[in-house]
């Protein structure tokens, strides 16, 4: 897919803009930017924000079942962070002239995309460990790159988020290490979770570069600095060593180490599964959306009360004046 030609836009301004990108300048909200740059950012940032928000759901449903008070407090703090990350990125997206209210509505209406990884179920406690280790681990690889994105508000949100994600990954890896060193049943539980999450975690980086319609444009404008495949490779290289250290095996019979490049080469990824989940037919797509809608509806009275209180206070101030 080739991006639509930039018509009716001042070619001088476009050249100036691209020169700024080439000089690694930060693009700020009030700066001139091509309409297409704005659109791509709104698309990407809002999907990212939605992913943080939906990401609270698979973990949230384990809060009441965490195996100890320590793990429970950690999980609550992590889920709260994910909500915070959603807020940072929604606020960043709003600097592009869209309204968070509309973005949230799109999510509730099922019109918005979010990371497919959250459409997989969390069947055991080991899944919570695996999410922290693999899903947050993959997110860190991606977000560390996005912290250098050309759009200032996005990059700044990523810097904040990356600092917090490290705790997420560590706590997940600790859960996995503990289970792996535990009883036979605990070890099996850890291995089973890794078996189910490994391939979906590789898919988090998106299609191969050759099949990624948005990549070229995003890289040309410095929104992304590395390609999907480069990021995926970095994640694989980091993670294989971590799996070995806790004596777990990734479920890939074709996995091999390439001496020349120093890379771990994985077997083929099942892209049919990827597209099936993206298009709404993953194991939990409907459940996640229903849970989000319910949470929003259940919170209606809080929003209503806050508004009523603000209105009352405002009217009292007017009367007093």
């Amino acid at each position: 897919m080739t991006p639509p030609p930039v018509v009716a836009e001042d070619s001088m301004r476009l050249a100036e803009f691209e020169a700024r990108i080439a000089r690694d300048e930060s693009i700020e909200p009030k700066d001139w930017m091509p309409e297409r740059y704005r659109k791509q950012l709104v698309r990407m940032m809002s999907q990212h924000a939605h992913s943080e928000v939906v990401g609270m759901l698979p973990e949230g449903n384990w809060i009441t079942r965490a195996p100890s008070l320590r793990r429970k407090m950690i999980l609550i703090a992590k889920v709260q962070d994910e909500g915070g990350h959603g807020l940072y990125i929604y606020c960043g997206t709003e600097t592009l002239g869209v309204d968070r209210h509309d973005l949230v509505q799109d999510l509730l209406d099922g019109k918005a995309k979010y990371s497919s990884i959250f459409n997989y179920p969390t069947l055991s406690w080991a899944d919570i460990g695996t999410i922290g280790w693999l899903v947050d681990g993959a997110a860190i690889v991606n977000q560390t790159m996005l912290a250098k994105a050309s759009y200032g508000p996005y990059a700044r949100a990523m810097v904040r988020i990356c600092k917090e994600e490290n705790f997420h990954k560590r706590q997940g890896y600790e859960i996995m290490a503990t289970l792996s060193g535990g009883t036979g049943a605990q070890r099996a539980m850890a291995q089973d979770a890794l078996n189910r999450w490994w391939w979906p975690s590789l898919m988090m980086f998106g299609p191969h570069d050759a099949d990624s319609p948005n990549s070229d444009e995003l890289m040309r404008w410095g929104i992304k600095r590395k390609s999907n495949d480069e990021l995926r490779q970095r994640y694989v290289n980091l993670t294989i060593a971590q799996a070995k250290a806790i004596d777990l095996t990734v479920p890939d019979p074709d996995l091999r180490y390439d001496e020349a490049s120093g890379d771990w080469i994985t077997g083929p990824i099942d892209w049919d599964e990827f597209w099936r989940v993206v298009k709404g037919n993953g194991p939990c797509n409907k459940e996640r959306l229903a849970a989000r809608q319910k949470a929003h509806a259940d919170g209606a009275w809080v929003r209503e009360a806050a508004m009523a209180y603000a209105d009352k206070k405002a009217s009292r101030t007017t009367e007093a004046a």
């Binding site: 703090a77 709260q80 962070d81 915070g84 807020l87 940072y88 606020c91 960043g92 709003e94 968070r100 700044r156 949100a157 904040r160 917090e164 806050a306 508004m307 209180y309 603000a310 206070k313 405002a314």
Partner: peptide, 23 residues
């Protein structure tokens, strides 16, 4: 550091604390 949505100033302060000062 960023922005928040809130109904009034007091609410904005509380949201800002939760969003930007958890640590």
């Amino acid at each position: 550091t960023g922005s928040v949505h809130a109904t009034d100033a007091e609410h904005a302060l509380q949201n800002a604390r939760d969003a930007y000062a958890r640590r």
